[in-house]
Each structure stands twice: as C-alpha cells, then as structure tokens.
Write a protein that binds this DNA or RNA. Structure first.
Lengths: 101, 101
DNA sequence: GAGGATGTTCGACGATTGTCGAACAAGGGT
DNA sequence: ACCCTTGTTCGACAATCGTCGAACATCCTC
C-alpha cells in the first residue's frame, strides 16, 4: 500500500493551491511548518479522525507532505525544501496567520 | 451597484488561495499579470461569457482584481502591489506556467 | 429610438467537496 | 490471546462549485 506521494513538479499548481485553500489543512500545514514530524493524531482541529485522515490524504497527494509509518502511528512532515524550490515564497506567504500592513 | 472590492487584508487567506485554485482563473490572473487593464471579453479561455463573468467576480471578491467601468466595457486589472505587499512571493510562485529546477 | 455590443444575473444541472459514524486493518502491551 | 490505540476506508449526506443558456441591463452608434 504505497502512500501516493507524487513528484511535486507533476502536481498541477491548482491542486497545490486547492490543497492549501482549506482552513483545517492550512492549520495542519502551519503546525507542520514548525519543523520535524508529527503523528496524524496530533492535529486536533475540531474534526473527526475520518475527516483528519482525509485532509492528510489531500495534502499528501498534492505533494505537500510525506508520511512515514512507525508502529501504529504514521508520522507526517512537510516537504518544505521541495516546495520552497518549486514555489519560492508560497509557503512563507501563506504561513503567517496575520499579516500586518 | 458597488463592485464588491474588499480590503485584501480582510479576505481570508483560504479565499485568496481558493480563487487561484482554478485553471480558468489562473489563466486570467496570468494574463492580467502582464500589466495594464483588460476588458472582460478579452479573456477567451473556452468558457461561456456567463462563466467568465462568474470567475471575474470570484477574483474580484477575493481581493485579487479591481474593475473599472467605461462605456459598455469593464476593465479589469490585477491588484499586484497589494498582493505582493500582503503575500510576498505568492503571485510570483504561482504565475510561472512551468517552474525550472 | 432601434439595434448591436458588452457584461451581469438567474435558475438549473452535474460534479466535487467537507463532514461524519461505522466498519475495518495493523501494532503494541499486558 | 485479548484489548486498546492509531489510522484508513467506506458509504452517505449537505453544501459548494463550475458550467451553461436565457433573460436582463447599459451603453454606444446609427
């Protein structure tokens, strides 16, 4: 059961943007941007675990994250290097919760 | 009938991203990024004028464009300065049709 | 004023999306 | 072996979205 982690360059830009254009997923990405990897269950943003699993799948299939299985947990991390290389400025522009004038 | 051009800072980031996460709208934005202003009818991307009008409305209400009425035409332009100030790097990351390594 | 050009608005439609509970799968601990 | 924890998958549902044709509104030019 391969985890469907596409080459980021093969993902349409609109798919990357669509993956980021959701409040829950954006919160996940912001949490991931702290660095390191986190188990799926650590993202408590008021949705059921089914929904959370769905959002993580969207992020993974958009090429934004990688997942590593370990025991019963699955650790998720942001593909920041590739993102910054392919879309410089995108993450930074999107990560700040509120931008002053 | 005011044209609903919100303060960009008041638009949720997800709404800005969602506005860009569509192929037709992204083509429009890329055309607009050439600079200057264009009448609505100049965006011929294989959709009906009703659909085109809809997409331009989405872009406008996401704070991405401004519209100026002149005669029977309405001229659209990209709010590039504000976008680059509020989301530095976003447009640049998204505008290139293909990103080299 | 009649006619044409340019856009917008109004349903309507199919498709996609976000959400959930329930069922399922796989591992770890006792 | 059992059970609990962690995640995924499977319908199902409501809501939203992209699309269109048709009708409408405005303005410009004869």
């Amino acid at each position: 059961m391969e985890p469907h982690e596409p080459d980021l360059a093969a993902v349409p830009v609109t798919a990357v943007l669509a993956a980021l254009a959701d409040d829950v997923r954006l919160q996940i990405v912001r949490a991931l941007a702290e660095g390191g990897e986190y188990p799926c269950g650590s993202f408590e943003f008021g949705v059921s675990k089914a929904t959370r699993s769905h959002h993580l799948k969207v992020l993974r299939e958009a090429g934004l994250t990688r997942t590593r299985a370990a025991g019963t947990s699955r650790y998720v991390r942001l593909r920041r290097d590739e993102l910054d290389r392919l879309y410089p400025g995108l993450l930074n522009a999107v990560l700040s919760p509120r931008t002053p004038a």
